[in-house]
Amino acid sequence: MTQQVEKDTNRFNKIMRVIFSAREGEDIGCDECYEHIDQYVDMIRAGQDPDMVLPQVKDHLSQCSCCELEFKALITILEAGASDDLDSLDRPDSSTSGDC
């Protein structure tokens, strides 16, 4: 497979995943997700299950790659900000451009 064909195939598969991941039903949207994301993160860090209290946030995060990326960035910033020893933190599995 040539590089161009492989690239085109990857792009095609990517858009198919984006399309087929759409689900029917109420979606709170990005603004409301942002409103609650700090509360959601706190519950996770406290070992609680935020999906019981804020299931709509979980649903949105599973649908919106931008908000999911922001959610992960928030956890990183929060944990590093609270740490006196950055070397002791778990490194992320992979890095991204950070855009979504």
């Binding site: 590093a80 900000g81 933190l89 950070g98 855009d99």
Partner: peptide, 19 residues
Amino acid sequence: TRLERGVYYYLSQERSDLS
């Protein structure tokens, strides 16, 4: 101090575009 440390870690560890 807290925000700067957190953001620095994010920029240095999670942003491949800033490598």
